[in-house]
Nucleic acid binder design. Structure first.
Lengths: 193, 193
DNA sequence: GCTTGAATTGAACGTGCGTTCAGATACTCT
DNA sequence: AGAGTATCTGAACGCACGTTCAATTCAAGC
């Protein structure tokens, strides 16, 4: 049934996803053609349809897998809220810096999703936000944090942390640990801890 | 030479820009056709070329005008850095909430600019960032602020403030003044003041 | 060596793209 | 009324799009 290990399908499939990821991130979903993706993979455009039913699904799968991986990557540890928050901030920055293209796409291409696909991604995004908000609320409850509004603080912190991706470049003047530390310092102060 | 006040050109020109703004913000530059813009304006596609040399320039003009207006809208007042920072935060949020479509485009469509146009917008953006960084440095110098890194703080604060645009909707549970106050509170704390 | 079927090609489909331009229209000024 | 011109139409240009599919290739298993 299956062909040998390393059959072409096992190679081409991931290649298609990687090429689409790269090109969507660089030029935007709407500006990239199936022929461009095929060219990057080294096949003709028709062959792509062995690996995705259509262009929209190619985008959606990238985004959904990314959001699911992000959610799976974070388990809030049993610890005081302050430590939870620090771990969350450092993990968020590190995870996002590891996947700049996926992060970029998941953020920029929402409007190119068909409504039902959009709803799926939106729900995953909200689930991730809820993880942070739970931490903030716990800190509010036990008096560690002083927050005017936990929902706004959640959104503000995530916007701030994700913003790292817009400027950080490997090999710049700051190591990743430095960046994590600086941002954690600002977050910690902003929640009044 | 000029036709009467209210000649068609005086009406159609702005209409074209408004339609392009609306559609680019909603669907993205690459996903919007000149025919769609023309349809929204109520003319045929060919007529658009009386008002812009091409589609790229239509985008660029929107972005450049927005950035220039943003810069022109802010004069750092003569006041203690803490007051300057509060004024900046409130102004940034208010100004951005007034122009969600322009803000969205200026942020999302950078990659659709040709290199020389990109450089212009990028310079304007940096000039705006410099205004904030100058405030932060002044506060660092006189001891009002406690910042690990003024450049990173600049980027972090702008990312956080601009993030308001992703969720704020008129008529929601918070008035704009509330939002400004809550964000200013977080920013103030984050800079150690 | 032959069969089988997964993997891919290459051409084709209809559609829409950005842009141009000759001609029509409609308003202003004399 | 007539001339002049700003504005716009409507058709056309060549090209690229997403997607389909019959035909071909080629390795695996008998």
């Amino acid at each position: 049934m299956a062909r040998k290990q390393g059959s072409h399908a096992d190679i081409t499939g991931p290649k298609v996803r990687k090429a689409a990821l790269r090109l969507f991130a660089r030029h935007g979903f709407a500006a990239v053609s199936m022929r461009q993706i095929a060219g990057e993979v080294g096949v003709q455009a028709g062959a792509l349809y062995l690996y995705t039913p259509d262009k929209q699904t190619l985008l959606f799968d990238l985004m959904r897998d990314h959001m699911e991986d992000l959610l799976a990557s974070w388990q809030t540890p049993q610890a005081p809220p302050l430590d939870q928050l620090e771990a969350f901030c450092r993990h968020h920055i590190g995870y996002h810096l590891d996947r700049p293209e996926l992060v970029f796409i998941a953020y920029m291409e929402l409007r190119n999703l068909e409504p039902e696909n959009f709803a799926v991604i939106e729900a995953l995004r909200r689930a991730y936000e809820d993880r942070l908000e739970a931490i903030l609320k716990a800190g509010q409850a036990n008096g560690d944090f002083d927050l005017p509004d936990s929902k706004l603080a959640t959104l503000a912190i995530i916007a701030m942390l994700t913003g790292v991706n817009t400027w950080y470049r490997e090999g710049g003047r700051l190591a990743r640990g430095d960046v994590e530390g600086i941002y954690w310092d600002m977050v910690r102060k902003s929640v009044g801890a």
